[in-house]
Write a protein that binds this DNA or RNA. Structure first.
Lengths: 243, 243
DNA sequence: CGAGCCTTTGATTATGGTCAAGCGCTGTGG
DNA sequence: CCACAGCGCTTGACCATAATCAAAGGCTCG
């Protein structure tokens, strides 16, 4: 299940996004030491499920996941989408149990880091500790922006903001910001934004007709980023989606 | 402006909620050493404002505040309410600037802790570091529940959940869970829940008529907690409101 | 090639928003 | 102590946005 590879953080293309950020060259090996690679998670399978014991932090290497919270009555809420470089599990530290599930939207590979080792490193390497605090802090700030998005914005503004945020996250990874693949379904987007599948579909059609985007199945091109930004109305911090 | 008092964490009634939690007796003085008391903040005044430089973490001693995020277009979103024992400013760590404002809802006093000292303590005292991580982690988990509340619930469910959450927070502070004062206006509640003042007013009237609550001005009694819990439908983690 | 899911589109409805007016605290100054 | 100003709250009438219900078309994968 868990297999070590020769893949080192030092060579990873995600160094600048992921945990290693801020660690001096000569300390990097200490992180490498404790990072475990996992075999890919199949589309639709869970990396971890709500209620399961918390042991590892995960960093997404390739692929994408949705973070899902299931309510007492069975309703699902997608609280975020994790892309490569994102860190998962930080919300589980406080009670040793995952409060959400993480489900792969496509074949996905992750690095796993035992949390006990993370805590240990935190005590020994100030820069690592500070970086970890920054990641969590950014998560909190991001959630506040999301709250504003759901609390104050129309369906159109939410969708526009969502697309821009995705675009920015691609840019941050050195990928094309104006042409990418949507790993999630319309229903997933709708759920995340507090809307319905039908509303998302109608809005996408409308944006297509207005020439703001081009979209075939899940292949998205942003044709008029400025227009999109205009309808969004607000800027949502493009940082860490979910924790 | 900043005055040290003889008030020690050791004697504080909030010890079990606040930063000292988890610190062994013989380490507590190290926290006392760096905590500063501030003169009370008047109703309507800000403890800090969005965009201002981040230097201190704050712990609410008495009173209550609303945490407000102001959008590019001037719209305000109240992302949470801070009660005694709550920690403020954790969302500012990542970029050295407060992403929100904190405005007193009534005369409020706080303890201020320079963040540089917090970081320093984190490095030296593992239990302190772990507690801090727990607080942030709980904040992240709480925000996920809030997302579900805004994304999936009706106006009535949101309000019921809000009242229950407030009630639980009072209970956690050793106060009456079924009879307390609402420090915020109807408009503030509405804004926080993504609704309007009028909707909140109508729902409160309805709950009053059904004998679920009694409410005169801002004096709230929960008469039928189980009924309220029933209409809420979901349980929202009553932990740290906002960070 | 077919089953099943995802997506689109249309018709209708409902929840909560908007606009508007009046009441009632609360606190201040005469 | 009372009067009045101002804000907060309530209530009503009407409206709009997005949900719901329904049906059909289009990928994807076995």
């Amino acid at each position: 299940m868990t297999l070590r590879t020769t893949q080192a953080c030092e060579q990873c293309t995600l160094r600048e996004l992921c945990l290693p950020l801020g660690l001096p060259e000569n300390e990097l090996w200490q992180l490498d030491e404790i990072v475990q690679q996992r075999r890919p998670i199949a589309k639709g399978a869970a990396l971890f499920t709500m209620g399961s014991p918390f042991e590892h932090l995960y960093a997404v290497r390739t692929g994408a996941l949705k973070i899902v919270l299931i309510g007492d009555d069975g309703t699902e809420q997608i609280t975020g989408f994790a892309l490569s470089g994102d860190l998962l599990g930080l919300d589980a530290i406080h009670d040793g149990t995952h409060p959400v599930s993480a489900v792969a939207l496509e074949s996905t590979s992750v690095c796993a880091v035992p949390y006990s080792h993370v805590d240990n490193l935190s005590g020994r390497l100030p820069t690592f500790r500070q970086h970890l605090m920054c990641v969590m802090s950014r998560g909190l700030a991001h959630d506040e922006s999301l709250h504003a998005l759901l609390g104050q914005r129309t369906a159109e503004q939410r969708l526009a903001t969502f697309l821009i945020t995705l675009s920015e996250r691609h840019r941050a990874r050195g990928l094309a910001a104006d042409h990418f693949h949507l790993p999630m379904s319309r229903a997933d987007i709708a759920n995340h934004l507090g809307l319905t599948q039908e509303t998302i579909s109608r809005l996408l059609t409308q944006m297509r007709q207005q020439g703001v985007i081009s979209l075939h199945t899940r292949d998205l091109k942003i044709l008029a980023p400025e227009t999109l930004r205009g309808t969004a109305g607000v800027t949502l911090d493009p940082a860490a989606s979910s924790a």
